[in-house]
Design a protein around this nucleic acid. Structure first.
Lengths: 387, 387
DNA sequence: AGAGTTAATTTGAAGTTAGAAAAATGTGTG
DNA sequence: CACACATTTTTCTAACTTCAAATTAACTCT
C-alpha cells in the first residue's frame, strides 16, 4: 500500500500534443518567418489542417500577425505569418555598475530601454526596480507582456529564486524574483548571464536541431553556461559549470574558492590586470576597463597582458572541448571588446588540443543587447513548454 | 516558398500522451513493483481509469504480469502488478579478452549467459556472434525479445552505428550494429561501457526524478559517461566525456591523443603499472590484472602503486565535480576490485576540492553483470520513447 | 444479512490530430 | 469571358486520449 501523494507533473494529458505542436510551430516560425501556413506544415511535418487550427489560436492570442498575401504563380495566394511585435517581455539586466530595464518583443527587437538607478540600500533598489517595471508596463500597456526575464551576474539557487553568490554586485538581491512576481503578477525567470546567453544563442540558432554549446563568461570570475541535451545543465544545487574552479596551475595563487591555481585565477579580468602590473615598471593601479582603454589607445603592455589572458582562456577552453565536445564555445564579457588582440592568442592556444579542432570558438557580439534579448528565451522556453 | 521536406519526428500526434504515460507507468512500476493499479495511479498522478487502460495494454503485450490479490484491511483486494519475466533483451558484452552473450529479462535478472569465442578474423567473429544470437533466440523462444543491447569498450560513432575507436579490442567491429540488425530483425542499440553503465545507474535509481551523474570507466584509458538533463551527453561527433584527455601535468608523459600529461596518463591502468615499476628494484613486467593479484596477496608495492593511481583518480574527479556538479560519480573497471585499498586515497584527494563535498563517490559493484544488465535500459529507453 | 470500504471498470465529455473532401482564390487559355 | 487547372486554406469526420464521475466488484466488520 502506497500512501505518497506527490503532485507529479510528469503525466501527459490529452492537451499535451497541442502544447508540443504549438511550440514546434513557433520554433519553425522563428527560424523561417515570414512563412505561410502550407510551408509551416511542410517544415514542421504537421498536417495543414492542424497548422491552421494552431495558427488561428496563436493569432487570436497575439503571438502571430497575419501579413500580406504573396503574389506567386498559380493558385490561391499564401498568406504570410510572422511573430507579432505585440507580444513582448520585460528584460532586466543587472550589471555590476548599472541596471538596465527594457521592453523586448518576441522577435528580439528592443522596443524601449533605460537605466534604473540603484541605491546603496539593496531593499530600496528592489523597490525602485519594481516601480520602474510598473511604470514601463503602463507606458507599454498596448502590448501583451509574456513575463519578466532577469539576467544577473553571479549564481542563482537551483530554483533560480534567489541570488546566492554575486561578488561583484554591491546590492545582494534577496528574493528579487518572488518580490517581482508578487508585485507584477507576471511569470518571472531569473538566471545568470552565462546561462541566459546560452539560451539566447540556441534561440537564435538557425539549425534545425539544437546542438550542445558552452558560453564562457569572463568578468571578475569565470562562469560557464552549459547547454546540453536540450537544456541548461544545472547539476546539483545549480552548481554545474564551474570550470573556472578547476585547478590548472600546480602552485598557483589562492582563489576565492579556497583552492589554489584555479583557471579563474589566471584567465579572468583580475589576472589580466595582474599581468599588466607585472610588466610595467611603475606599478599603476588600473581597473580592467582602464586596461581595455589603454589597449584601445595602442598601449603595448596592456595588449600583451590581454594576450596572456587570452592564452590562458584558450588553455582552459581545451578542458571544455575535451569534456563536452560542444559545437560552439562562445565568449561573453567586457573582454570581447578586445577580441581583435585576443583572437590569435586564444585560438593558437586552444587549437593545440587535438579535441579542440572542430569546435567553433567565437565571441558573443553585442553583449549588452544580448543580455537584454536573452530575456525572451528566458521567459518563453518555460512559458511555452508550460502551456 | 519553402521546398524542404524533412521527415521531422518532432511533431506530437494524439497518440503521444499514451506513449508518455506508458513510459511513466513502467518507470513507476520499476521502482515500486509489485504495486497495484490504485497505487500506480497515486504514484504517477494519472487517473485510475487511465492506469487501468494502460495496464490492460501492457499486460496484453507481456510487459506486465498480474499477480496475487493482497489480503489487506477492508475493501476489495488490490491486485499486484510486476514487470514480466517474459519480456527480455539480449545482451552482448564485448570485453577485451572475452565476449559474453546473455538473456536478461526486463526486471534485470540474467536468465542465461555464456561466452562466445572470438576469432582472429573480425569478420568471422561477427558471424559467430550472429549465429550465437540466433541460437539463443531459438532456445528462449518462449520469451518476447525487445531487442539487443551491445556494450563495447571504446567509442562509437554519433549514431552508434560503428565502433570507431577501440584500442584494446583486437577485432575492430565494422558495422556490427547494422549487420546484427538485419540478421535478427530486432532493434539493436550499441554504446560504450561508460554510457551504458550510466544509463543502468539511472535505470536502477530509486529517486523519483533523475539527477545528473557521471560514470568514470578506468581501463587502459579513462572514459566517462555523462548523464545530463535526462540523457547521455554525446556532444559533437559523440566525443563528449573525454575528461581523460584533459592535461593535468605540465610536463607529463606523452598521451595516445598526441598531447602530454593527460589525466589518462596518470590515472589509468598503465599508470598504475608504471608506478609499480618505479617502486620495485628488479623492474618486473606486470600487467594490471597481475598487479591486482599482487595487491590481493598483500604485496606492499602494488598496493602503494594502486594508491598513487587512486589519488590521481580523485584529483581528476575534482574536475568533473567542478564542471558538472553531478549528484554521483561512479567508478567502473577492473580496479574496483581493489576499492578497499583505493577508497581512502581517492576520497582524500577528491574531497580536497571545495566543490567536491556533496558529490557521492562510489564504485559500480558487480561490474560484469552491470555490463550485461545495462542492455535493458540500452534497448528500452529508446524503445519506450519510440512507441 | 447488511452497511461500510477500497479497488477496478465503465461510461460520457472534451480535447487532439490526421486525412479526405470542400472551399477559396488565384492563373492560364480558348 | 467562361472554364480548366493549381495552390492554399478551411471544414468535416474518424480515431485516440485523458479525465471525472458513476458503477460494479470484492472484501471486512458488526
Amino acid at each position: 500500500m502506497v500512501r505518497q501523494n506527490q503532485p507529479t507533473v510528469r503525466t501527459a494529458s490529452n492537451k499535451m500534443p497541442r502544447r508540443v505542436n504549438t511550440k514546434l510551430i513557433l520554433d519553425v516560425l522563428r527560424k523561417h518567418q515570414p512563412v505561410s501556413r502550407v510551408d509551416l506544415a511542410r517544415l514542421s511535418g504537421l498536417q495543414p489542417s492542424t497548422v491552421s487550427l494552431i495558427v488561428e489560436e496563436l493569432v487570436h492570442e497575439h503571438w502571430l500577425d497575419e501579413g500580406e498575401f504573396v503574389k506567386g504563380a498559380m493558385g490561391r495566394r499564401p498568406q504570410l505569418l510572422s511573430l507579432s511585435h505585440d507580444r513582448c517581455v520585460i528584460a532586466i539586466d543587472i550589471h555590476p555598475r548599472q541596471t538596465t530595464l527594457a521592453v523586448v518583443d518576441i522577435t528580439g527587437t528592443i522596443v524601449w530601454q533605460d537605466q534604473v538607478e540603484s541605491s546603496p540600500d539593496p531593499d530600496e533598489s528592489v523597490r525602485r526596480l519594481i516601480a520602474a517595471v510598473r511604470e514601463v508596463r503602463r507606458k507599454h500597456s498596448d502590448r501583451t507582456c509574456a513575463g519578466i526575464g532577469i539576467c544577473v551576474p553571479g549564481r542563482t539557487d537551483p530554483a533560480a529564486e534567489h541570488l546566492i553568490f554575486a561578488p561583484n554586485l554591491h546590492w545582494p538581491i534577496l528574493a528579487l524574483k518572488s518580490r517581482m512576481q508578487s508585485a507584477t503578477q507576471l511569470p518571472v525567470h531569473m538566471d545568470n548571464v552565462a546561462n541566459a546567453c546560452a539560451l539566447l544563442e540556441v534561440w537564435q540558432s538557425q539549425s534545425a536541431e539544437p546542438h550542445d554549446l558552452v558560453v564562457v563568461e569572463v568578468s571578475e570570475g569565470l562562469g560557464t553556461g552549459l547547454y546540453i541535451n536540450g537544456g541548461i545543465a544545472r547539476g546539483r544545487g545549480g552548481m554545474a559549470g564551474e570550470f573556472g574552479h578547476i585547478p590548472v596551475e600546480q602552485k598557483g595563487i589562492p582563489c576565492s574558492c579556497g583552492n589554489r591555481g584555479c583557471w579563474e585565477t589566471v584567465a579572468a579580468e583580475p589576472a589580466a590586470v595582474r599581468y599588466y602590473r607585472e610588466k610595467v615598471r611603475r606599478k599603476p593601479l588600473v581597473s580592467f576597463p582602464e586596461l581595455l582603454n589603454l589597449a584601445a589607445s595602442g598601449d603595448r603592455d596592456s595588449i600583451s597582458a590581454l594576450r596572456t589572458m587570452a592564452r590562458q582562456l584558450g588553455r582552459g577552453m581545451q578542458m571544455i572541448a575535451a569534456a563536452l565536445a560542444p559545437a560552439e564555445i562562445i565568449v561573453v564579457g567586457d573582454c570581447t571588446a578586445a577580441w581583435a588582440w585576443m583572437e590569435r592568442a586564444i585560438e593558437q592556444e586552444f587549437r593545440k588540443h587535438p579535441l579542440a579542432q572542430k569546435v567553433v570558438l567565437r565571441p558573443c557580439m553585442d553583449a549588452a543587447t544580448a543580455r537584454l534579448r536573452s530575456a525572451v528565451p528566458l521567459v518563453l522556453t518555460e512559458t511555452l513548454t508550460g502551456l
